[in-house]
Design a protein around this nucleic acid. Structure first.
Lengths: 245, 245
DNA sequence: CGTACGATTGAGAGACTTCAACAAACGTGG
DNA sequence: CCACGTTTGTTGAAGTCTCTCAATCGTACG
């Protein structure tokens, strides 16, 4: 029986995510698996949720790549985070009713919508799941803080290296990265909006990173020849991802 | 009876904070008031909690001014947020056991330590308080996002104006600001570390803001002659503070 | 009254931006 | 399956914001 549930965990990205945060009881697993999910596919550059909306569901990324972002009055965009399968980029909408930013698909992505109502019901019956989700949103905030540190105090070069380290680690944690690289469907323009830089400068930084043999980036395929060297250049310390239980 | 409890709310900063997020039942109020608080005073520039530690309490600011920050290997500092009476700058430590940054007092501050254990007990008996605290930490994250937007995409001038708007609104919400100004015990050096700028540049930005008659800043006293003008210059929209219930 | 900390000023340097053009890669329809 | 148009990546040059260094000024406090 535990085996059967364990098998489902492989296929259910939410279960996998929560199991990564804390050991679940069988009852909790069942409660999660019983959540009604409505699957929806978003094309690239289509919004999943928009600033100002009051969503009635949370969006669980099943496949693809999604980001949170905000557009300023003058048209500038700041990307606030990247989200991969298993992530819930608008988990906050369960408790903060008005969206203060948007969520958009970077590439064609599959999203499972979880009604707030059914999530509430499950959390009421399994209060520990509520604690786990709280923890998930705190890890989210920890990533924001690390990005703030980069935006405020790191050079463009370091910032880029740091972001690549973060993505590699997060993708590896969900089995979407090889030992020495991963696929990143992120354009240089999107990198720029995430790092607070111009597209042109991001292009030159990538060339610098290539010149220093820290990365091989062809198309959307990232290869990291020397993980230690990249981490060192980025001053990357994965502690903020709070991955280990 | 409700009146008596209400009176206590005035003096108990945690109750006031939580009441600002959601209406509390009498039972919930009593549970909060029953929390054992140990008062501790920190001098200016003394750490309340340090990166790497595993706190056994949460810190509720009772009086003073506190910030979260992280020091980089090269000595640069990024301030991640300012915290005022009623705030719990390390609320996350309840669910994320290792601190990934530090908390320090900007001026002599009084902090009430709440043992994680007793907080856990109260939250287990009053699950709705858990939801409220979750919401509090989500508002925290919303403020991080807004700072990211500033650090990534706003000019130094706008960033400074925006921060002053935020502090004015947050201080007014707890009765620590006048209609047209407030006291900010923050040095230009600290502003710089919060805004991702150099001290020298912050100084020049402040002069620009003064020249444009947007602020009067003498010592630690901030005066805002034209609130609308400052908000406009900052493109400040308080929605991200999620203040209205 | 000296000392220390915070605020202010000047000057030169560097990181990053903007604009504009071009090359390469990609997807799509004929 | 190729031609075409659009998107993405790349390059150069000029300009701007912000930084660093280093000195000076003001003021509160012992």
């Amino acid at each position: 029986m535990t085996t059967a549930l364990h098998d489902q965990a492989q296929s259910n990205p939410l279960l996998r995510k929560l199991s990564g945060v804390a050991e679940l009881t069988d009852k909790e697993r069942q409660a999660v698996l019983a959540l009604p999910l409505s699957i929806k596919v978003f094309d690239a550059d289509v919004d999943v949720v928009r600033e100002g909306e009051r969503p009635s569901d949370c969006s669980l990324v099943v496949s693809g790549f999604v980001c949170r972002y905000k557009i300023l009055p003058d048209g500038k965009r700041q990307i606030l985070g990247f989200y991969v399968p298993g992530d819930i980029p608008d988990l906050q909408s369960l408790r903060l009713h008005v969206m203060d930013h948007s969520v958009g698909a970077l590439v064609k992505s599959t999203v499972a919508l979880i009604p707030h109502q059914s999530l509430q019901d499950v959390l009421q019956r399994q209060p520990r799941l509520s604690d786990i989700l709280w923890r998930v949103s705190l890890i989210d905030a920890a990533i924001f803080r690390e990005w703030m540190i980069g935006l405020g105090r790191r050079s463009g070069y370091q910032r880029m290296a740091h972001l690549l380290c973060e993505l590699q680690v997060r993708l590896k944690a969900i089995g979407l990265a090889e030992e020495n690289g991963c696929e990143l469907p992120i354009t240089q323009n999107e990198f720029a909006d995430a790092l607070g830089l111009s597209t042109v400068h991001v292009n030159r930084i990538i060339q610098d990173l290539r010149r220093d043999s820290l990365i091989v980036l062809r198309g959307s395929v990232l290869e990291i020849p020397d993980w230690g060297a990249l981490c060192a250049a980025a001053e990357f310390d994965p502690a903020y991802l709070h991955l280990g239980r």
